[in-house]
């Protein structure tokens, strides 16, 4: 009986730590404020918070319970696109936090070409990812 309570306690505190860490990570990178700024929907920020929370809960549930839904594989297209955009925004936010582009452009004296440098990273990510899934995983 005691061990059950102990398991519940450990599981709950572990979830608490991971959830807080996840939210802290998102907050530091500032992805959600950026989306509200782009879409001009600052008022809906509470709804976005709930979106993140429900997404995390669903993801946790699905990965722990392994349900089978028997849907068509086309459902994966929007899912893939959305998760790609999300990861892309995280990656962009991360390079921004690390101040990569301002320093690079300043050092090289190409402040006006910064978009071209940015595109190098964007294309690099897309091509690298496609290469990984289409070719690399088979070898």
């Amino acid at each position: 009986m005691i061990s059950h309570f102990l398991t519940i306690f450990v599981g709950f505190s572990g979830g608490l730590a991971v959830g807080a860490g996840f939210v802290a990570f998102l907050t530091v990178l500032g992805v959600i404020p950026r989306i509200t700024q782009l879409t001009k929907t600052m008022k809906l920020i509470a709804a976005y918070e709930w979106g993140v929370i429900l997404g995390a809960i669903c993801g946790g549930w699905v990965s722990l319970r392994d349900p089978l839904l028997f849907l068509t594989p086309y459902v994966l297209i929007p899912l893939g696109l959305f998760s790609g955009v999300f990861v892309g925004m995280l990656a962009a936010a991360l390079t921004e936090v690390l101040n990569v582009f301002p320093i690079l452009a300043k050092r090289m004296g190409v402040s006006d070409q910064i978009v071209v440098l940015l595109m190098a990273v964007v294309f690099g990510k897309v091509v690298g990812s496609l290469f990984h899934w289409l070719y690399f995983v088979d070898h």
Partner: peptide, 29 residues
Amino acid sequence: IITGEKEAKPLWFQIPYSLGLGIGMILFF
């Protein structure tokens, strides 16, 4: 989970994901 079948290379997910990666970065900036 979604289709109920096994697939070693779920390209339906992976290709949109790869394109989304670029779109996400451009959107952010």
